[in-house]
Amino acid sequence: MDTTLQDPLVGRTLDGRYRVDARIAVGGMATVYRAVDTRLDRVLALKVMHPALAADGSFVDRFIREAKSVAALAHPNVVGVYDQGTDGTYVYLAMEYVAGCTLRDVLRERGALQPRAALDILEPVLAALGAAHRAGLVHRDMKPENVLIGDDGRVKVADFGLVRAVNTHTTSSTGSVLGTVSYLAPEQIEQGIATPRVDVYACGVLLYEMLTGAKPHAGESPAQVLYQHLHEEVGLPSELVPDLAPELDGLVLAAAAREPERRPEDAVELLSKTRAARSAMSNAQLDAIPPQAIAVADDGHDTSGDRTSVLPSQAVAQAQHPELNRTSRMMLPPPPTVGGDDPAA
């Protein structure tokens, strides 16, 4: 039975403007719906805070902060925010609707990815985070569920709901650590510190998971996973994927180092290292199929039931959709001239 039929918001129009058509996803803080802006006749995503949380001023402030932060970024690899408002007990964000799937869907249905596909996803994620880091913001909750892959092949980072300014402490009102345990950096767990390096760590874990089909740390409880983040290094993906290019081991080793000072300073630096690693790899290394990969049809059969068909097998992708391997590249500012003003100062 379609549970969206039981949702009281489906079929309603919020704020006299946004007609709610269907529920997309439910999270701990909000529910996301597909809606139509009746003024502009535009499909969008409506993120509505759970009414029980809307009575808490700190949660509402976080919601509004997300809207302002993302609106200020205006990056092609960040899900855009169009509007923010309230309707009675409902607090909402009107956001860009991305038709496609999440990276979690891809990993669930495809298992481990070929290195080329993993890098094709990682690079635009790092471009988006790099723009945030240069703007003085940290995402803090990077995970496969927050990486959207559109039907057109574009990759976008979503859910800046936990975004904070650089160098702030980030615990909730109850003292618990915010974020998803499998992707939390050690300093987030121990000290609640938010610097760009916590996003770098999460991207190292993401890359490991894309290459191997498994998380680097596992346990029967969140506490066990947190303990491993604090006391164990993330392993090399080649331990699970024989003959994996050493450049990929190096990326994971650097990005997911336990000590923050051993990681790249921010996503901009990690993006540079990622592109260098790609350029050093052969086509055979980039297109190697990991043993954990789940086979998909590449013979022209109907794949309409596969939500991850936006990532076809490499041979078909190159022949039919070469644009899928073109990632949006962030333009980096030139280095400061000697004796000149440092824009970051």
Rank of each mutant, 00 (worst) to 15 (best):
D15N: 15
P322K: 10
D266A: 06
A94E: 10
V241W: 00
E190C: 00
L40Y: 14
V32S: 01
M210T: 02
R23M: 15
V157C: 07
V234D: 05
R164L: 10
A118W: 03
Q191C: 00
V225C: 02
H169S: 10
V155G: 02
V157W: 06
A52Q: 15
P216Q: 13
S309Q: 15
V79M: 06
L5S: 12
L270K: 07
P322V: 07
D2Q: 06
L162N: 01
A280W: 00
M281H: 07
P260W: 14
A74C: 09
A245W: 07
F59A: 04
E109N: 13
G130K: 08
L107F: 07
V138Q: 06
V106H: 09
V98Q: 03
D199N: 08
A72K: 11
G150P: 04
R17D: 07
G340N: 03
P333S: 03
E123W: 01
L107Y: 05
R42F: 13
G339L: 12
Q285F: 12
Q224W: 04
Q191Y: 13
R65K: 13
V157I: 09
R23K: 15
V81H: 04
Y208A: 03
R39C: 00
D299V: 02
L207C: 05
R42M: 13
G85K: 13
V138K: 06
A117I: 03
D37T: 08
R65N: 14
A255K: 04
V20N: 11
G300P: 09
R197K: 10
S176V: 14
Q84C: 08
V241H: 01
V91W: 12
G57W: 00
L207H: 02
G340P: 10
A267M: 07
G27D: 11
I189R: 12
R23E: 15
A71E: 08
Y208G: 09
A345F: 01
Y183R: 08
E239R: 15
A202N: 10
D2M: 05
V43K: 14
D299P: 04
R17I: 13
V70W: 04
L248N: 02
T3V: 07
R23G: 13
P333C: 05
Y227W: 13
R329G: 01
R326P: 00
R262E: 14
G179L: 05
S69E: 01
R263F: 11
N283W: 06
L248H: 09
D120C: 15
A99P: 01
R42H: 15
A185P: 14
G136R: 11
D199L: 09
L244M: 08
G219V: 11
G57I: 07
H217W: 08
Q292N: 05
F160N: 03
L14M: 06
G130I: 01
P115M: 03
P336F: 09
G130M: 02
